[in-house]
Measured scan of single mutants.
Amino acid sequence: LVRYRTISKIPQITLNFVDLKGDPFLASPTSDREIIAPKIKERTHNVTEKVTQVLSLGADVLPEYKLQAPRIHRWTILHYSPFKAVWDWLILLLVIYTAVFTPYSAAFLLKETEEGPPATECGYACQPLAVVDLIVDIMFIVDILINFRTTYVNANEEVVSHPGRIAVHYFKGWFLIDMVAAIPFDLLIFGSGSEELIGLLKTARLLRLVRVARKLDRYSEYGAAVLFLLMCTFALIAHWLACIWYAIGNMEQPHMDSRIGWLHNLGDQIGKPYNSSGLGGPSIKDKYVTALYFTFSSLTSVGFGNVSPNTNSEKIFSICVMLIGSLMYASIFGNVSAIIQRLYSGTARYHTQMLRVREFIRFHQIPNPLRQRLEEYFQHAWSYTNGIDMNAVLKGFPECLQADICLHLNRSLLQHCKPFRGATKGCLRALAMKFKTTHAPPGDTLVHAGDLLTALYFISRGSIEILRGDVVVAILGKNDIFGEPLNLYARPGKSNGDVRALTYCDLHKIHR
Rank of each mutant, 00 (worst) to 15 (best):
126 C>W: 01
421 R>M: 10
77 I>S: 01
140 F>K: 01
81 S>L: 01
300 T>H: 08
405 I>L: 03
412 S>M: 13
212 V>F: 09
293 Y>V: 01
258 S>N: 12
134 L>E: 01
191 G>R: 13
441 P>F: 09
168 V>G: 10
290 T>N: 01
419 P>L: 06
321 V>T: 02
375 E>Q: 09
403 A>M: 05
276 S>T: 11
129 L>R: 05
281 G>K: 01
443 G>P: 01
276 S>Y: 04
121 E>H: 15
347 T>K: 03
161 S>N: 07
104 Y>E: 01
162 H>N: 04
349 R>S: 10
113 T>L: 03
311 T>E: 01
421 R>N: 07
388 I>M: 08
337 S>A: 10
160 V>Q: 06
98 T>E: 03
210 V>N: 09
267 G>R: 01
294 F>W: 01
65 Y>R: 10
384 Y>F: 06
228 F>P: 03
106 A>R: 01
345 S>C: 03
432 A>Y: 03
206 L>Q: 01
188 L>M: 12
75 W>R: 04
348 A>D: 03
65 Y>I: 07
383 S>A: 11
84 K>I: 04
233 T>V: 12
428 L>M: 06
277 S>H: 09
203 T>E: 01
292 L>H: 01
261 G>F: 01
293 Y>M: 04
160 V>G: 01
99 A>F: 01
344 Y>V: 04
271 G>N: 03
196 E>G: 15
235 A>V: 13
369 P>C: 04
277 S>I: 04
238 A>P: 01
286 D>P: 01
335 N>T: 03
333 F>S: 03
146 I>F: 05
300 T>I: 01
426 G>T: 04
169 H>W: 04
402 Q>P: 02
350 Y>G: 01
181 A>F: 01
197 L>G: 03
325 G>W: 01
294 F>C: 01
356 R>V: 06
264 H>N: 14
308 S>T: 09
207 L>G: 15
308 S>V: 04
176 L>M: 13
381 A>Y: 15
80 Y>L: 06
236 L>N: 01
78 L>P: 05
71 R>W: 05
115 E>C: 07
379 Q>S: 10
360 F>R: 03
219 Y>H: 07
295 T>C: 13
202 K>R: 04
132 V>N: 01
424 T>G: 13
374 L>V: 14
204 A>P: 05
163 P>Y: 05
208 R>E: 03
414 L>V: 07
353 Q>S: 09
113 T>K: 13
303 G>D: 01
368 N>Q: 12
256 M>E: 15
223 G>P: 07
282 P>V: 01
333 F>W: 06
264 H>Y: 12
346 G>D: 10
191 G>H: 14
90 L>V: 11
345 S>L: 08
258 S>K: 15
117 P>S: 08
274 Y>W: 04
235 A>R: 01
167 A>H: 01
195 E>C: 15
126 C>E: 01
175 F>N: 01
335 N>A: 03
187 L>W: 09
436 K>G: 09
350 Y>E: 01
232 C>F: 09
140 F>M: 01
92 L>Q: 07
233 T>F: 13
91 I>L: 01
232 C>N: 01
223 G>S: 05
207 L>N: 04
276 S>A: 14
104 Y>F: 14
434 K>V: 05
205 R>K: 09
141 I>Q: 01
288 Y>P: 01
184 P>A: 01
297 S>Y: 01
430 A>V: 07
396 G>W: 11
168 V>N: 09
406 C>H: 15
74 R>D: 06
